[in-house]
Write a protein that binds this DNA or RNA. Structure first.
Lengths: 214, 214, 214, 214
DNA sequence: GATGAATGAGTTTTCATTCAT
DNA sequence: TATGAATGAAAACTCATTCAT
């Protein structure tokens, strides 16, 4: 009991630090964020950070992990209420889009991490851990497509792996573009992110649905 | 004549340095690449780099610019032989895909730049310049879609801006995913990048073509 | 209370660093003194210097300011006990001479600063600040001469501005010569600085005093 | 003959380089002046400078020497037409003042050199050489005072060494102040340098002349 | 003689991490 | 636990000097 309370307290402080760190990592990137800034933003002393995280890297990866875990939880939640594979696939896309809007900081941190991924040392256990989290999500997509082809909600002629890759790439690409280039797109068009996503989903659902036969 | 020769020589050396720098920027990112490493890789002394580029930033942005210029040239070239808007749009996608394969370093450098873009000082003229280059390409896509709708090769019911954004986000997202996650995908599937792209293009062409009416 | 203690501690450390830096600046000049040397001399790590001074320039100018402030305080002190303008002028000269002997490092630092003054960026606020300090001292001389002419202790026929400039130039010139060329003069004569200054003051007092009429 | 011509040509080029270097040394100081700038200003290639001067230091000291030699020549010239010691002393002061006005660059270079003197390596033969030149001038002053005391034009009660030191310090101090602080003095008074010098000479002549007895 | 590209040692500054209090 | 002063390795950049042409 007592340990739990302590752990809980510790966990809360860790979250506090990550909340501060996250914002800076997003804004300025991993390299340009200093421990001094993180300490200042979290209103703690520099040394204190090292009581909760062993290094700057640890702090970064733990933050990324928290974000990925949250995304995974939301996706799982969304899928639970779906009655067939097609709906699951659509739900995953919608959840991802909503995540990027409602948990903007988490989303941007994941993005920062993924685009930098190759620059981190692959053998680092933290890197591997985050890698696996991404894989879990992709596997969920593959199994949903399979389920859909089996229950007849997704066109049987589609290649499971191919379409999964394409779909995941499309959705992540789209969300990233909209997120990174929000200001640019605002300049080019009056559309807000939601409208662009809706349009994409509308166009893509038709491509995917079993009623049409490609 | 003499001046041309000198300029040419200087240009060649600049390219030599950029070739070396590029690889490091891609591998380790802008921040993690040091001028000492670049010097070593290009087999020159550190000071020599500063004879050709005023700063590390200058070297980076000039490299990005070279890559973007090359992409733009290839796209222009590809479009020239197309007989209608639909073909132009398809050509742009194909060129982009091929660019990511044939000019892998250039592609990855652009990617590195674009994903870090928000972390650079926006008011920097170099940043603005690269920004504009991206815009040019997007504008080309918009005008190709417009042309396609006019010449009847693209479905008139599609919203020009919306579909342009979606298409560009899809294609860049797809290429990025395939590029960044090449090893991951290799693990998941036997498909090579080319096959994934072909599949995407096949699926998308149907969505776009005027014959079908969504 | 606690804050005072902290501030005091910080101030002491700053003084410690300045003491070390000063000696090097005097010996080798601003340019030829490196932060590494200053760190070594003050027995601190290089990085520590930057906890107390934002840059080498800051360290230099803060040291100059401390020296000028001290000089100004001594002059003010000396003037307080004078009963007429003539005595004030003489007091200023004596204080300046004594300062150059008793606070040799401070004096030499000011000298180093003033002879390099034109090489610093005039628009720098630090430069301006030091400039003003010098002006304050000159103004004090002018007002003392004026006072002396009014109270009858200085010859009324003398032009206030002219004589102030000449006196100040003479005294600073003399002190500088004696300071810079100490070794040279030692070679030429058995006189020590004090004797030279006394001789100058003796000769000059006559020139200045109201009893004689030039 | 031929050698003379070559030497002459070489000498001319050396002077050309020194003219350019001098201006930069005065403006920005020895340290802040780069060989590249000197090359540019003298419209020669950087490597060419090293054909005429073995190092930056050599270039600097040779320039200083040229300036000191010129001053010495002017002083000698001025002294030649004087009929007694008193006149010689006055002539030296006037020549020095005029030198600071008519050969401003030379004067400022000497000044820069002398105020930095202690920062140069004393054992350097170039430093010694310049040192000796200064000594020659001072010795000339001492012998003029002696001559004046002998020929009755200077008050016999004055101590030769003391008064020589004081006079030389005063005049060099005054000229330096006026030169370094020209802008400052312009702000404080409408007097031009010439007027300040005249005033000094007028005041000092009285102090010195044999008619008065101190 | 003349050139200017190339060199690399040396400079200022930053910042993750440690540790005495 | 919490602090923040101290550390020193590492980075970008400069510039006197050399040397092949």
């Amino acid at each position: 009991m007592k340990y739990n309370k302590i752990d809980n307290k510790k966990e809360k402080k860790k979250n506090l630090i990550m909340d501060a760190a996250e914002k800076l990592f997003i804004q300025k990137g991993y390299q340009n964020t200093t421990m001094t800034e993180i300490a200042k933003k979290s209103k703690l002393a520099k040394g204190t950070l090292y009581l909760y995280f062993s290094s700057k890297k640890d702090l970064y990866f733990t933050s990324v992990e928290r974000a990925l875990r949250t995304l995974k939880e939301l996706i799982d939640e969304g899928i639970n209420n779906c009655k067939n594979g097609f709906e699951k696939v659509v739900s995953m896309g919608k959840t991802y889009v909503n995540f990027s809007i409602n948990y903007e900081n988490y989303y941007r941190l994941i993005l920062d991490y993924e685009t930098q991924e190759t620059k981190f040392d692959e053998s680092d256990p933290n890197v591997k851990k985050a890698y696996e989290k991404s894989e879990e999500i992709f596997n969920l997509l593959v199994s949903s497509v399979t389920e859909g082809k089996n229950d007849g909600s997704i066109d049987k002629n589609l290649d499971t792996t191919k379409i999964s890759i394409v779909l995941w790439a499309e959705i992540t690409g789209l969300v990233q573009q909209v997120s990174l280039r929000r200001d640019l797109y605002k300049k080019w068009t009056a559309l807000n992110p939601g409208q662009i996503f809706d349009y994409y989903i509308e166009v893509t659902q038709r491509m995917l649905s079993a009623q049409k036969s490609y």
